[in-house]
Design a protein around this nucleic acid. Sequence first.
DNA 1: ATGCTATGTAGCATTAATGCAATATCTCAA
DNA 2: TTGAGATATTGCATTAATGCTACATAGCAT
Lengths: 81, 81
Amino acid sequence: MLFPMSRNPEEPVYNRIEEARTALGLTRQELADRVGVHYQTIGYLEREEYSPSLVLALRIAKALNQEVTELFSLTPLKKGR
Amino acid sequence: MLFPMSRNPEEPVYNRIEEARTALGLTRQELADRVGVHYQTIGYLEREEYSPSLVLALRIAKALNQEVTELFSLTPLKKGR
DNA sequence: ATGCTATGTAGCATTAATGCAATATCTCAA
DNA sequence: TTGAGATATTGCATTAATGCTACATAGCAT
């Protein structure tokens, strides 16, 4: 098992992708399709095994109609908005 | 000269880093230090030769006290706020 | 003119992000 | 119970993002 997450392992990126995705009743495959990535990539991101590129983060936010800062943060995110 | 920019060359990421940085009277080296990257990296980003990771984008936004969406966008950004 | 500082350009090395395939597990409906 | 769908795990290949070094250029102050 590899564990990248960022060049600075001290500061990972937290996200609420799964929460937002399921709230829309979407499957990972469906979100992946909308965003244009492999469905496994969504899995990696939801498990926070690595953090996305900015492009991907922006696309995901758009696909889930959320603000980037509502979805991703350098500090732990609480459940629910 | 290489030209990555994103896995999807059709959709680059536009940014206003230089504008925001100079507005604060910061040099690239200074911004790089605050953000924890090499000063050349800031240059590449300002010239939009490639787009940053989300972690870096979040750190830059914080260092320039700007919203991520004010600094970066999938669509071209106009000058001035 | 000289020198200093900021920035641009060019390579090269490393690593994280992504693609992709194959297999496993888990849940839930029939 | 069986099967289908969703998610997890593993492993490998590719490439973009980043680090870093060296040299060039441009502007500005002296």
